[in-house]
Design a protein around this nucleic acid. Structure first.
Length: 441
RNA sequence: GUGGUUGUAGCUCAGUCGGUUAGAGCGUCGGUUUGUGGUACCGAAGGUCGCGGGUUCGAAUCCCGUCAGCCACCCCA
């Protein structure tokens, strides 16, 4: 006998979990579409050379890779952005720019697992390429905001920053070639003390005076206006830095103009992002109640990514919802729905002699747009109802020989056990209309 | 990948200094006069004690390995 089991970091989803995931996927799809993003798909496997060296050394290590039966070096995608860059470079001639796409798909990373951190998980990406317009940056943040609101989150914060601000300071300090290292160090400020980060910077050869300036930039606090004011003198000597500050300032103003509530999006100079390819604005999103979970939706502007595959300039900006991490967080917060059925209506099989009537009724209900589960056995009604209640149906339709004779039906709200009797006179369409009204309440 | 920690019925756990057929609650299934569920009563099923070795007369209990979960590092969704 072979032990049934799954690989480390790979999971089965039971109906309740799969329903929750599909629900959020549907929301993401709807929000992305509402901004005009179009769906695409790409293969799970790519030539290894497409995937390596694009994210960072770390992602190269985490890449699932193998040699296929034809001797090709193959990798499994570890995110959706790098495959998209390849996709864009390959198809841009027929796509035209600007091009907006979304992509909901599974990715794989061979790293160590933890809560909300798996080796196989889904991402919900959306990106706009072919434009450097600040409007695209603004729209990216708006989409993330709308998405988190549509999911039903109330307590979340989107933190934004612009990499050019730090890049400007690094330029001023003559540390441009150490950008990646410095970014990684500063990214830890949420978890480590400034002193510890300062020591780590020093260990990488950053002079104390320079480290002080970097830390003071990253630790700027207060209102967005105060943070912006604090940034200006630090980057005044750098055109790049000034551009970054201006971009963030314009972004915040745009969000305000778009009606985004105060506090939903905050300027956080410490947000830097580990991936090498970001060049402009960066954003991360956190559940206020679970800061330790990490970012559930992150992104930014990357103006050089597609340059690895084409000479054509393809700037891009976008973000990605980590749906499995989000669901792990919602589960921990007790915010996941427990229904194990996608159907709202339970049709009891009361009297086997009326099987044909039940089938006609079920068909009429389905034709009316309702999802209906008809119980397959004429079991004791109590048992059928108990089963229906556990599965999470909203409404039970109970029609026995008495009801058939009288042309009535009992509609029972399973959550409250409240039952009402309606007349349908043997007309399945009338019954369907009544059931639809009952489900809607 | 490195370090730490945990692993007993579907779930949450108990198992005393290693000692005979491993327990509880919840859940599940059946029943409590053949038309109505979440409360009550009765009964039942369900465990290779993660897996594999070792020590021992004897191991769920000790040792080693391995797999998996969690935590930190790392990195990120």
């Amino acid at each position: 006998m072979i032990t049934p089991r799954t690989l480390k970091g790979f999971r089965d989803l039971l109906p309740a979990q799969a329903l929750a995931r599909e629900r959020v996927l549907g929301i993401a799809r709807d929000v992305y579409r509402s901004y005009g993003f179009a769906p695409i798909d790409t293969p799970a496997l790519e030539y290894l050379e497409i995937l390596t060296g694009k994210g960072s050394e770390e992602t190269d290590k985490q890449l699932y890779r193998f040699t296929d039966h034809g001797g090709r070096e193959v990798g499994m995608r570890f995110d959706l952005t790098v495959p998209f860059a390849r996709f864009a470079a390959q198809h841009i001639a027929s796509l035209g720019t600007p091009f907006k796409r979304y992509h909901l798909a599974t990715v794989w990373r061979g790293e160590n697992t933890q809560r909300g951190r798996y080796r196989e998980f889904m991402q919900c990406d959306f990106d706009t390429i072919g434009t450097t317009s600040p409007v695209a940056d603004l729209e990216t943040v708006l989409v993330v905001h709308d998405l988190l609101v549509a999911i039903g989150l109330e307590r979340f914060t989107i933190r934004v920053n612009d990499r050019r601000i730090l890049a400007g300071l690094l330029e001023t300090l003559g540390l441009t070639d150490q950008t990646t290292v410095v970014l990684r160090c500063l990214d830890k400020l949420g978890k480590q003390t400034p002193e510890a980060v300062g020591r780590e910077l020093a260990s990488h050869g950053v002079a104390a005076a320079a480290a002080d300036q970097l830390l003071s930039l990253s630790q700027l606090g207060g209102t967005s206006a105060e943070i912006l004011a604090g940034m200006e003198p630090l980057v005044a000597a750098s055109e790049t830095g000034r551009a970054g500050v201006a971009a963030v300032s314009a972004l915040l103003a745009g969000l305000d103009a778009a009606g985004v509530a105060d506090g939903r999006v905050t300027l956080d100079p410490a947000i830097a992002r580990g991936l090498d390819y970001y060049t402009g604005i960066v954003l991360e999103s956190f559940l206020d109640d679970l800061p330790g979970l990490g970012s559930i939706c992150s992104g930014g502007r990357y103006d050089n990514l597609a340059g690895l595959y084409t000479k054509q300039s393809l700037p891009g900006v976008g973000a990605s919802l980590g749906i499995d991490r989000l669901l792990a967080g919602l589960d921990e917060l007790g915010r996941l729905e427990t229904a194990e059925t996608p159907a709202e209506v339970f049709l009891a099989q009361f009297d086997a002699a009326h099987l044909g009537d039940y089938l006609r009724i079920a068909a009429a209900l389905r034709a009316a747009g309702l999802a209906v589960d008809f119980y397959p056995e004429p079991k004791k009604l109590g048992q059928q109802l108990k089963w229906a209640g556990k599965k999470g149906f909203r409404l039970a339709v109970v029609i026995g020989s008495d009801e058939f004779a009288a042309g009535t039906a009992q509609l029972k709200q399973l959550a409250t056990q409240q039952a009402t009797t309606i007349d349908w006179g043997g007309d399945p369409e009338r019954l369907a209309a009544a059931v639809r009204a009952a489900v809607a309440t």
